[in-house]
Design a protein around this nucleic acid. Sequence first.
DNA 1: ATGGTTGCGAAGCAA
Length: 261
Amino acid sequence: MRLATWNVNSLGARLPLVLEWMAANEPDILCLQETKLADDAFPAATFADLGYESVHHGDGRWNGVAVLSRVGLERPSCGMGDAYDVHGCRLLAATCAGIRVHSVYVPNGRSVGSEHYLTKLDWLARLREYLAEQYDPGDAVAMCGDFNVAPTDDDVWDPAQFVGSTHVSEPERAALGAILDWGLEDAFRRFHPGGHVFTWWDYRAGSFHKGQGMRIDLVLLSKSLSGRCRSVEVDRDARKKSPAGNKPSDHTVVVAELADA
DNA sequence: ATGGTTGCGAAGCAA
C-alpha cells in the first residue's frame, strides 16, 4: 500500500506533472494540497479514467485539498465540522482501505505575531480537538499534508536563517506536538533520524539546487498504522522539471509504504 | 545584491 502526499501549488498548473508522476509511481492513495480549484473544476473524470476515486474540497482561488484512491473511498468529510472550515478549504477526510485518510493544509502564518500566525495556531489547536472528538488513538488514522511547521531544527537547512521566522517557532512546534501527543507518529523520522531531508524549497535564488529547504510536508500515522509502515521517502526528483518538461511545485512528494493489515 | 520565483489573473498579493 503506497500512500503519498503532495502540495501541488495549483492543480490547474500541475496536472500534467501529477499525471506523469502517478503513472510512474502508482500510488494507492494520494493526498493533494493547494489545488486552487473550485470543486466543479476538479478533474475527477481524468483520475477516474486512471482507476482512482477522488474527492475534492476547494473554493477556487486559494487552498483546496483532495484525496485520490484506487483502494476504495468512503465517507468523505470536509473540514472540521464547524466555523473553522471557513478559514479555507484545508481539511478533507475519506476512508480508504480501512484507513481514515486526511489531506491537511495548515495555514502558512506569514509572520510571527501576525493575525495570520494566530489563526495558524488556532487552526492547529482545533485540529487537535477534532482528532479527539472524531477518533480513538487506536483507530487507523493518517494525517497527510503540508503542516507548514518544521518539527525540529534538523528539518531546516540552517536554523540560524530561521530565527524569528514562522514554521520553526516554539508555539507552532508545540501545537504540532500536541497533535502528535494525541497518538500520531511523524512516520518519516523513524527512517531518517538524522534529518536534513526536505520537502519544500523556495522557488527563488536557486534554493533547491543549494539544498536550502525545509521538511514541512508530513505523514502522521496512528499506532496501528505506524506499525505497518515500512518506509517513508521524499521523492526529491519530483521537485525538478520533469522528463516530459513539466514544471514542478515548490513542494515535492512524500511517499509512505504500508504493509497489509 | 535586503535580492530572488511562481500562480492567479490582469495589479498586486500570497506563498
